[in-house]
Amino acid sequence: MTETEKQHDISTLTSGAMAPIWEWVEERIPPDTGIFDAHAHIGEDLDGRTMTADGMRERMKAAHVKKSIVFALNDPNALEVFSGPNDVVWRAHEEHPGFFVPFFRLNPHKEYEREFERCVERGFSGLKLHPVSQKFELDDERAVRLFEMAAKADLPVIIHAGFGMNRIVEALLPTIEGNPELRLILGHAAFVEILQAARVFADHPNVIFETSVARAAELYELFASFDPSRICFGSDIPYGDLPSTLYATLAAAEAAGIEKEHLRGILSENIRRWFP
């Protein structure tokens, strides 16, 4: 079986020993919840992972997901400023109207001004930054400048705040305090510092936590200590998948006693406040 065929055989994620898990998940999704996935990728990565717009749509349909924020992977073709991979994301948005919320990706080490301007003019809905892949700290002055540009353009920013991260809260706080209008999505819920992030960012309403590939125990910490109206679901496709990430989110929420009305918010309505 080729990698592409394997990636498109999504039945393997909900069959066999995963079938009762998926059944449990489906039972807990509140009726009429148009699930919104706040973290997914389209394109290809240096590590060989790939995802197409069609592959995303198949996964979304199978898991009752109505809309997904999508952005580029750490693309081998992103020689300078990710313009090629950003174009792939934009094409997906144009070819599948209403299903994808396109974010563009940048490398703070490169001359990003022109690509930033091009993507804003084109109509991208947000910016993605990945401190591990692009090897920068969140308080690097080039990154801080990008945060300020995004705030000025009223553009939400999603940052990778998961695997491989060391400094999140301390590095972000001055930027958040200095730019209270900046809308920031903490990808992977800042799981390495999740409790401190929940404490420190509680008073900053434009910071929201996105759940993809954080483990249920970490999400339990978040659900037990943070305003659920500022938490949104994400999958991190193709690194994560919808059945297992929905399970982690719903199992943690149930263990923490999150009420059904808030589940609808976490799975859909909270992020739709920014992307109706």
Partner: peptide, 30 residues
């Protein structure tokens, strides 16, 4: 099943099962 998918080099199907397994254990500990 994860072992079976590991042998087939089907990373997503394998990791989904291991992630869920970890979460099941974690929730039980809680």
């Amino acid at each position: 099943e994860a072992k079976k998918y590991h042998a087939r080099e089907d990373f997503p199907a394998m990791m989904a099962r291991l992630r869920v397994a970890y979460d099941l254990v974690s929730i039980r500990i809680i």
